[in-house]
Design a protein around this nucleic acid. Structure first.
Lengths: 328, 328
DNA sequence: ATTAGCACTGCTAATTCTCAAGTGCTAATA
DNA sequence: TATTAGCACTTGAGAATTAGCAGTGCTAAT
């Protein structure tokens, strides 16, 4: 357990370092405290002993270690009030009735990226509460048609499909079957329901039933797949810790790789969670702060990615605010 | 006019520089030609006199100037055969019947980006030949509904809109009006037709006619807006000329700015056009090679962006191939 | 327990030095 | 007249050196 003064010093070093990105020396700290630089140096040495601080070289100032940041977010950090201006801008987005919820989300995270110079990620997926409302087909020509899928929450998706040698009659029949038997099913269960309720009987009505079944199956599969939105990637270029091209390429590569994002960013926990450096699976030189969100028609993850030297308090407050606002 | 030997030297310098990105000295060249390095130096001096070559400092090798590249693409460059492997990969994309045309385009440009390490851009827009086939509404609840717009080529778009205090009756009436009067209109003329044919009469059928009109107007406006697809942006990080963060931020900023892309990339000419350095409006340190394309349902621009030190011959051939393939 | 003082460390930036690559020019040559 | 050999010269890149500074750890005094 740290003494009061050690806590103070650790906190000062971290907040100073977050702001300046340069190692912090004892002189700077002792001005804030009622003691000499020598005393601070002694304390720093103990904090380093505990693994909370590091030096970049023998005679440099101190830099927080990952363990130091962890201690900071667990014990020292105070929630930060949202500043008036930030709050106002976010309010404007959420009060805009014109915007669909998913647009609100990306808009507000775009704003946060601009304000903080970090990168935001929204992962969205249809939720269990999202039920199939109806499907619809619009023929284009003999071989091509559009399938439109609508959920009860107003989420719509369409896909152009090619079905050769299948009469419009048969397609209509299939659509009716689906509308009769599947409507009302949570969207994430449609696939299995299709398989057990439609597949066995479709042969009675449709000649090329395998092809037709596969086509519709594919449409629903696409529908329930996740969408990924990475905002403010270029902000990475503004962070001094990412000042070499290799590193930038590395991180940009990861942020462009959808699979990697889904695997490493998706959050299952409803709290605001902080993953510092090696604690996160995306890249050990960044911190990821993220949370799961639920709305009536979708659920997913919102995440902020930045350097380990991140304004933790501010980001947590912003994420809390957004999560709260989209969930109502 | 250049002598035969001068042409040869210029060409050698440019191809060598394109490949190595380092100033080219006389020694390297004289090995390819039957003459001494002194002779080559003399010729280089004349080529510099003509503004076709430059030096980075008094005793460096030569680097092509923009005028040099221009001369090269106008007079020296031979069209390059598509190599078998590249060709094969592209063929696979174009032969895939499953893919929509627009997907083919982005797929093939993604491939080109990977092969060349340049960045590709596809600008698409609905063309004049693209006609409104039908519109459709699906009510979600009392205030919200989905508007679905379909064109005769199978392009579909949907939008969720909120219309308070408007009865379903009135909305259906509006939809019928549009389907009766506007269907068959080229998509880029729908807006004006709405204004002149629907706006004057809608008041007869709908109480809140202004709001309803505006809503539909907005839907069509969104529909006909251009879509932009920038692929392989990260390749910029691989080019040695873009090795400082400032420059990268600059270019990334431009490539993320949709307005800038539309204004500076859109091409009106059907040939493959090459814009070297200051000749292009995007950024004076890059070369843009681009062309306009037409398909039955859309037209737009495809462009490749890379350093001035670009493999001109290869890119031109690739673009020609793609243009040809999507246009049939 | 705290602090003043001092020797010590390692980084950064400036300076100098060296070397290689490449040039332009002159004079000799074919 | 066109080409070439030869040489003095220029420059940048990289290595080595140096000076100075920010900051440390330790010791001894308070």
């Amino acid at each position: 357990m740290l003494t009061e003064r050690q806590s103070q010093i650790l906190k000062l070093i971290i907040t100073e370092y977050i702001q300046s990105a340069r190692p912090v020396g004892s002189n700077l700290i002792c001005k804030e405290l009622n003691c000499s630089s020598a005393t601070v140096r002694n304390e720093m040495a103990s904090l380093e002993e505990l693994g909370l601080l590091e030096k970049t070289h023998t005679s440099s100032g101190r830099v927080p270690s990952e363990k130091g940041y962890r201690y900071y977010v667990d014990h020292l950090m105070k929630p930060k009030e949202l500043n008036g201006e930030d709050m106002l801008k976010l309010q404007i987005i959420f009060n805009n009735q014109q915007l669909e919820l998913s647009d609100c989300l990306s808009e507000s995270l775009k704003l946060i990226s601009d304000m903080t110079n970090y990168t935001s990620i929204v992962l969205g997926g249809t939720s269990h509460d999202n039920k199939l409302k109806e499907i619809n087909v619009i023929p284009i020509d003999t071989d091509n048609l559009i399938v439109i899928v609508v959920t009860d929450t107003g989420h719509v998706e369409n896909k152009k499909v090619t079905l050769k040698n299948v009469s419009l009659e048969e397609i209509k029949k299939t659509v009716n079957l689906i509308n009769d038997l599947i409507v009302g099913t949570p969207i994430d269960e449609v696939s299995s329901k299709l398989e057990f309720e439609i597949k066995p009987i479709i042969g009675r009505y449709v000649k090329e039933h395998e092809m037709v079944y596969n086509t519709f199956y594919q449409v629903f599969k696409d529908f329930s797949s996740k969408n990924i939105n990475v905002v403010g990637k270029n902000n990475i270029l503004k962070q001094p810790e990412f000042n070499n091209i290799e590193k930038i390429r590395d991180i940009f590569g990861k942020l462009d790789n959808n699979e990697e994002i889904i695997n490493n960013i998706t959050e299952e926990n409803n709290d605001i969670n902080i993953y510092i450096g090696k604690e996160n699976k995306l890249d050990e030189e960044v911190t990821v702060i993220k949370t799961k969100y639920h709305t009536k028609d979708q659920e997913g993850t919102i995440a902020i990615v930045g350097p380990k030297r991140m304004e933790y308090d501010r980001v947590v407050t912003l994420l809390e605010f957004i999560k709260e606002n989209i969930e109502k």
